[in-house]
Design a protein around this nucleic acid. Structure first.
Lengths: 216, 216
DNA sequence: GTCTATATTTTGATAGAC
DNA sequence: GTCTATCAAAATATAGAC
């Protein structure tokens, strides 16, 4: 629900402005859908325009370039799925609760193939430093890892996660599992139960690193 | 070392034939390098030709289409890295030895960023059913999973892996970890030790599912 | 805000000479 | 086997009317 500032105008919007905002929003939705299957490079702005009911130039009125359209898409995605992990506006889940939150994220993702496809496609494309989404991708991984690292360390401090747990490796592996399951799921959605597999993974972690809270 | 049949001619090759084979091989090497960073869609055959020291038409003499070039690349990769897991020409490793073999594969991959990049890029691109490498990708996952499934079940039968181990999930998770670690490694190679992380993963599996062989 | 028209590049592929 | 020349299509982007 967080739109760019200039769309939350306090005064009433004219018909034209409303139509403009709708065109823009529809273009972003269409772009997500197309980027998620054909990727950024594989999608032409002409096709986005067509499916959004606009001419190519009409689309480029809202987004000065294709890269600008991609940025709008990324912002929209971040808005849509953000604060799912960090908690709505309370504090982020800590310790094992963080893994439960991740499980919830997987459950939500398994009903949103477009968002998963978008992420998987862009993750591969944007490895290239010159890609317009490269720094977005780097930031995504950095912040995800930092979020999970903090949560695990908090769990160690509170005594629910074993102090010997290899934090860095657990973070890397958890992120890898999330990404890897998405890849397999996209390739053949019916053959794999992402939530089930991730739950199994977390159960293994708990079996190895869980500690009963010790209030000495 | 397994080249397509028509390159293992028993008779001596003429100069022209030898030059032709070299151009072709060089083109494949260059294509791997470019596909691995810019992807298939993001790489023009003109650029491949230039870096291979050929004109565009000269390249297209060897590969009638861009898709044909991709196929040659995939065959080359399969030849290069194949039989690493299935054993050189003896039987494939079974039980925990399969995971050790995978660790070896990770170690080898961490010295071949081009091959890893190629795979990661194509894995994302070729999710699309219309992509020329789509069925190659499906086959890759199917055969990898089947290889690992067989190895784990053999380990259960021989008594070194716990019979309650959830085979399907372990296979899915192991493949996910392999893929996911590669993604993170490509994005920032120096920040992650793929072999170390994968070893930690396998150690966790052993801790949970290892059984001392029981010769009752 | 949206359109038509157009400019410019790039791309994959073909024809035909050597 | 390799090259030059060329084509047709597609893609990003701009100019300017309404």
């Amino acid at each position: 629900m967080s739109f760019p500032p200039h769309y939350r105008t306090p005064r009433a919007r004219s018909r034209v402005e409303a139509a403009g905002a709708e065109s823009r929003a529809k273009a972003v939705r269409v772009a997500i859908e197309l980027f998620s299957t054909a990727g950024y490079r594989g999608t032409s702005i002409a096709l986005v325009a067509e499916k959004a009911g606009l001419s190519q130039s009409g689309l480029l009125h809202h987004f000065p370039s294709k890269a600008a359209l991609l940025m709008a898409v990324l912002e929209h995605r971040q808005a849509e799925d953000s604060r799912f992990l960090t908690g709505n506006d309370d504090r982020p889940p800590l310790g094992w609760a963080a893994f439960d939150a991740l499980t919830g994220l997987v459950a939500r993702n398994s009903q949103r193939p477009e968002l998963v496809g978008l992420f998987v496609r862009l993750s591969a494309e944007a490895i290239e430093p010159a890609h317009p989404a490269h720094s977005w991708l780097s930031d995504h991984y950095t912040s995800t890892r930092s979020w999970l690292t903090d949560a695990i360390q908090a769990g160690q401090n509170s005594g629910e996660i074993h102090p010997d747990a290899p934090v860095t490796a657990l973070v890397r592996l958890t992120v890898a599992v999330l990404d890897g399951l998405q890849q397999q799921w996209l390739l053949d959605p019916d053959s794999i139960d992402m939530v089930g597999e991730f739950t199994t993974f977390v159960a293994g972690l708990r079996a190895q690193w869980h500690l009963t809270p010790d209030r000495s």
